[in-house]
Design a protein around this nucleic acid. Structure first.
Lengths: 148, 148
DNA sequence: ATTAGTTGGTATTTATAAATGCCAAATATT
DNA sequence: AATATTTGGCATTTATAAATACCAACTAAT
């Protein structure tokens, strides 16, 4: 038996990731600058991408190229995700958290100071990982219901 | 005392609306084709815009020009609105309604057949009227909470 | 040691969404 | 009756987001 590489293990250097996606390394850096993706960084500051990073990027590429949604559009859609319900942070914490009120940046791009999330690595967070497609965001919203 | 014109009364012909917004009439028709706006139509098929239509359009213009969100991006953001919670339709109805599952078109663009909404005029609907800004959509989502 | 790949910055190119122009038929206005 | 405006369709222009190229300093591999 061979050791199977976990989906979230950062293995691909940027050039490989670029080839897999058929784009340039600059585009990948741009997506990172725009906070659409958070690649793993080695101590030497070199990026590594996991298989799930590649999937995430395919989804982003699809939104841009097929669905014709601009990068700022994608960011705004991400900002609609009610992360607080998923994280389960306290009412006090969410009131301090910029992610709770932002409607232009994803939660992982505005990360507050005194929140549950401030110590966490967003790259490993389920809000970041599981809701890269807007269908998933809408599904999550569907499972919420009105406070009586 | 003068009679005050209600905010939602359709009074401006397309050329006036275009002047108020500093855009061409073609752009207004394009936004309509894209289902971003539903102007009132006279029996002769001529469009009329209300003051609140103009406000809605200013908001759309702002999203496009300032926030750099593409038209398809705006449509997708609108599709995130949990209209069913606002309308209060039955569980059966929402399962039949395409708006419940769409994540690319606003509810008023996909309007189902056997729903509460099928007979209603979306132009007069609060979901259409009150949630033209993504800040309002996010605020509404905030007032939902997780089903235990 | 030499070659190959990565870093971040600015400048440039390209692809295309968004906006506009033009048209003839229909409707509105005076 | 004559003039002005609206209609929708297709063609064209324009504005710019997205992608790429180039750069020198740094890190990795053989």
């Amino acid at each position: 038996m061979f050791y199977e590489i976990p989906n979230d293990e950062p293995i691909y250097p940027i050039s490989t990731a670029a080839k897999l996606l058929n784009i340039s390394v600059h585009t990948l850096r741009m997506y990172e600058k725009e906070k659409l993706i958070i690649p793993f960084k080695k101590n030497t500051n070199h990026r590594l991408y996991s298989a799930s990073d590649i999937e995430r990027l395919k989804c982003i590429r699809n939104a841009i190229n097929e669905s014709k949604i601009s990068i700022n559009g994608i960011k705004t859609i991400y900002s609609m995700m009610p992360c607080w319900e998923f994280i389960g942070c306290s009412e006090e914490e969410r009131n301090y958290c910029p992610a709770y009120s932002s409607h232009s940046e994803p939660c992982w791009a505005v990360k507050g100071e005194n929140t549950i999330c401030s110590k966490k690595e967003c790259r490993n967070c389920d809000v970041y990982n599981k809701f890269s497609e807007c269908s998933n965001i809408k599904s999550f919203i569907k499972n919420l219901s009105r406070v009586k």
